[in-house]
């Protein structure tokens, strides 16, 4: 009986809500937003992209008159979700979130959405890569690591994403920057890679810092250096590559985007909403707890960042035989 009573109540709610929706009448041009805004996430619930999106949605909802909800459209290596957002009605009610894999995916899959088909909105933050090794390898510094690879190319087994994924690109960029060769073993995402380095199946990894910060503190894993401009807030004891004298910056990043053709007032509204949300110190603190760095940027700078990333990554992809479409 409980079930029946419950459905009767939900039924009533449904009727009530739909009556309200009817009463609200036809849409007026000026009043954006007047219905929930959706952020489309291109990876499954529970992943990094999803966590970031839900965090943003939750905090932005407090500033917006309407709820902001997250919807996961997954599959095809993340290309589905990007396409779902890029091909949505350009009314500002559908946004997407993307990461660095967007760029590689564009060259791997002819059905993936190219940069021209989306309109970058607000930059969320970088998720800098790092170089981690197991403590029992005896490697203590980046120089040790490079020396070992120079002496015996391929002698270190590195855990990373499948080709085109963020940590695979960090590893590839590392190889080309230092002219070394490691044995790159692909895993499906960060969690399996973390398990692999902890269990000793691989000796090193090129994961973002927050994935292994705890193991670094516990002493099982040593984070040799961070591939960012500044040290990471989770591991203030770990130097950057730049401090060590190597010009090496690489990693993942996240940004919100809109489909092309959103009216400019709507776009301005959304830009303001998300810039303010992400600049809120309380939000930054909440994001840091999860391990995210937050450095919001407006649309023009976001686009410039993506273009720069594309330029840096393209030769690497080409070299690794990962450019099958849209050859430059």
């Amino acid at each position: 009986m409980t079930m029946l009573r419950l459905s009767r109540r939900t039924l009533f709610n449904a009727l009530f809500v739909s009556t309200l929706a009817l009463a609200a009448g036809p849409a007026t041009a000026a009043g954006f937003p007047e219905k929930p805004i959706t952020i489309v996430v291109n990876w499954p619930a529970g992943g990094g992209q999803d966590t970031a999106a839900r965090l943003i949605a939750d905090w932005a909802s407090k500033r917006a008159p309407v709820p902001i909800i997250v919807s996961n459209v997954t599959g095809a290596g993340g290309a589905n979700g990007i396409r779902a957002a890029a091909e949505a009605e350009p009314d500002g009610y559908t946004l997407g979130i993307m990461g660095s894999s967007f760029v590689a995916r564009g060259y791997l899959n002819e059905n993936a959405t190219p940069l021209e088909d989306i309109d970058p909105l607000v930059f969320f933050g970088p998720d800098p890569g790092a170089l981690e090794v197991r403590a029992d390898t005896g490697i203590k510094t980046v120089q040790d690591y490079i020396d070992k690879l120079k002496a015996e190319p391929g002698s270190i087994i590195n855990g990373n994403d499948a080709p085109g994924g963020s940590s695979h690109i960090v590893a590839s960029l590392f190889e080309s920057a230092f002219d070394v060769e490691m044995t790159k073993v692909p895993y499906q995402g960060y969690a399996p890679t973390v398990a692999a380095i902890i269990s000793g199946e691989v000796q090193s990894a090129t994961l973002p810092v927050h994935q292994l910060a705890d193991q670094h503190k516990a002493g099982d894993i040593i984070i040799l250096a961070v591939a960012a401009e500044a040290r990471h807030f989770l591991t203030p004891d770990v130097p950057t590559f730049k401090e060590l004298g190597f010009d090496f910056v690489a990693g993942d990043w996240r940004a919100l985007f809109l489909p092309n053709g959103v009216p400019s007032e709507t776009k301005t509204y959304l830009e303001k909403l998300f810039m303010e949300t992400m600049s809120d110190p309380a939000f930054v603190e909440a994001a840091q707890k999860v391990g995210f760095m937050v450095t919001p940027m407006p649309p023009a700078e976001t686009k410039a960042w993506i273009v720069a990333h594309d330029a840096a990554v393209y030769p690497i992809l080409l070299d690794a035989d990962l450019v099958t479409t849209r050859k430059k």
Partner: peptide, 18 residues
């Protein structure tokens, strides 16, 4: 009517399926 409403409540309202 009942099926449509249940689908609306379950998939649209609660889990926000697109």
């Amino acid at each position: 009517i009942v099926t449509t409403l249940l689908i609306y409540v379950g998939f649209d309202l609660v889990i926000r399926s697109r």
